[in-house]
């Protein structure tokens, strides 16, 4: 399958990419291409110009220094293998290692993933749970968007036209316990349900829980009802069950369904995977 014709330009810097985007209203960025190219082949999208940012090396760095910074072009394979990510926020390394397959992880990027905002993606869920910040650059300068505000709807983000994601910043989570639990689609490996838990504990008691669900709903969303249930509680089986019930109630009619996993099934699995994420975070 061939996509519709387009012009191709390889950008050498973020500034150049921003300028080209500003000058061409029908242009799209090309990062790893692992969401965009399949969509172009199906002619679901037909941009007139592709601006390839794949060779901008300054966007590929991962570094930990006060906070963890991941360049938009870091591939899923590099995020999964990074010693800094594993140490700083193991749930993200784990989520990245569960994406698709080795070929997809080698070329797909974290920036492309969040910009695409597929509801069945993994990174949005863990980035919201971490309280991450998305740094972007556009024609009028840079801005920082909280991950929680970045994902707006199905395939829709808070990015303005012409903005480029440059890096993702994850705050210092030392002392927190975190884990991601995922039910993968049996063929594509995309998330049917994914839940990330980031917990602050004092002994057995949960001081604060950040719980986020993806896959089952239109965009990754905090499970605030379940978070409230766990605050100040001992995380025993009864508390986990109460949190799961609260999560199921919050997801309610927002649960999405398809031929592989109908809405009621996904809703029920949100409760299951919430408990698994918490148990696995507690170790």
């Amino acid at each position: 399958m061939y996509p519709a014709k387009f012009d191709y330009y390889r950008a050498n810097s973020v500034e150049e990419a921003v300028k080209l985007l500003a000058e061409n209203s029908d242009a799209k960025l090309l990062a790893g291409g692992h969401s965009l190219i399949p969509a172009m082949k199906l002619r679901l999208t037909q941009p007139a110009l592709l601006i390839d940012i794949g060779k901008i090396d300054s966007l590929k760095n991962i570094k930990a220094n006060g906070s963890l910074e991941i360049g938009a072009l870091a591939t899923h394979a590099r995020v999964a293998a990074s010693a800094d990510v594993k140490k700083w926020f193991p749930a993200l390394a784990n989520a990245a290692s569960l994406i698709g397959d080795q070929q997809v992880r080698n070329f797909g990027t974290i920036g492309g993933n969040i910009a695409h905002a597929d509801p069945a993606s993994d990174p949005p869920t863990v980035l919201i749970a971490a309280g991450a910040t998305i740094h972007v650059r556009g024609a009028s300068g840079t801005r920082a968007i909280a991950a929680e505000d970045f994902f707006v709807d199905l395939f829709t983000t808070a990015l303005e036209p012409g903005e480029v994601v440059t890096k993702i910043e994850i705050p210092n989570l030392s002392g927190r316990k975190s884990a991601y639990a995922k039910m993968s689609h049996p063929a594509s490996r995309y998330a049917i349900v994914g839940v990330c838990a980031v917990l602050s504990m004092e002994g057995d008691t949960c001081k604060e829980a950040r719980l986020v669900v993806g896959g089952a709903v239109a965009h990754a969303t905090r499970l605030s009802e379940a978070e409230a249930v766990l605050k100040g509680k001992k995380l025993d089986a009864a508390a986990l069950k109460a949190a799961a019930d609260a999560a199921i109630a919050q997801v309610g009619d927002d649960a999405m369904g398809d031929i592989t996993a109908p809405a009621d099934y996904r809703r029920a699995m949100v409760g299951q995977y919430l408990q698994r994420a918490i148990q696995s975070a507690l170790g």
Binding site: D52, Q102, Q103
Partner: peptide, 18 residues
């Protein structure tokens, strides 16, 4: 699947220009 700079790649999901 081919190797691009040593990494496995699905070559149906990549443009030759890349």
């Amino acid at each position: 699947t081919v190797h691009l700079n040593g990494e496995a790649l699905k070559s149906c999901t990549f443009f030759a220009v890349q």
